[in-house]
Simulated assay, not measured.
Amino acid sequence: MELILWIIAVVLVGAGVFALFRHQILWGIVLIVGGLLVGPGGVNAIS
């Protein structure tokens, strides 16, 4: 399960960075924050 969350986090952050390069600032920030929450050290690490 932890590996799946890592993969999801990497995809979200990657999509966020790609959105930033396409000048979609708000959507990019939302994706990056979502990836950080899902990934290591995010909300999952608390529980």
Rank of each mutant, 00 (worst) to 15 (best):
G14V: 05
P40G: 14
R22E: 12
V30S: 10
G42F: 01
H23I: 15
V33A: 02
G34A: 00
I46T: 03
L36N: 01
A9D: 03
I7A: 12
V10G: 06
A15R: 09
W6K: 14
M1T: 12
L12G: 06
F21W: 10
G41V: 04
L31Q: 01
H23Y: 10
V38F: 08
G35Q: 05
L36S: 00
G39T: 01
L37K: 05
G42H: 02
L37S: 01
H23Q: 13
F18S: 13
G16D: 02
W6F: 09
G41C: 04
V17N: 11
L36H: 01
A15K: 06
W6I: 03
V43A: 11
N44T: 12
A45I: 07
I29G: 12
A15D: 11
L3S: 11
V43L: 15
L12A: 13
I8W: 10
S47L: 10
W27N: 09
V38C: 03
V13Q: 05
L20E: 01
V30Q: 10
V17R: 09
I32Q: 05
R22N: 11
W6V: 05
I32K: 09
L36F: 05
L31K: 03
E2I: 07
P40I: 13
I4A: 15
G42V: 04
G41P: 00
W27R: 12
M1P: 11
L20H: 07
V13I: 00
I7S: 08
L31W: 00
E2M: 09
V30F: 10
Q24I: 04
F18N: 14
G16S: 04
V43G: 05
V13K: 04
I8D: 10
I8R: 11
V10L: 03
G41N: 07
G28I: 08
V17F: 10
G14Y: 04
A19S: 15
G16P: 06
L36G: 07
H23E: 10
I29D: 03
P40F: 14
I32E: 02
I4K: 14
I32S: 08
L26S: 15
I8Q: 14
V11W: 02
A15F: 08
G35Y: 02
I4Q: 15
I46W: 11
L3K: 15
V43W: 13
P40M: 13
I25A: 10
G14H: 03
I29F: 07
F21Y: 10
V38N: 00
I46V: 07
Q24H: 00
F21N: 14
I8M: 09
G16L: 02
A19I: 09
G39D: 00
A45R: 07
G14W: 00
R22Q: 11
R22M: 15
E2F: 13
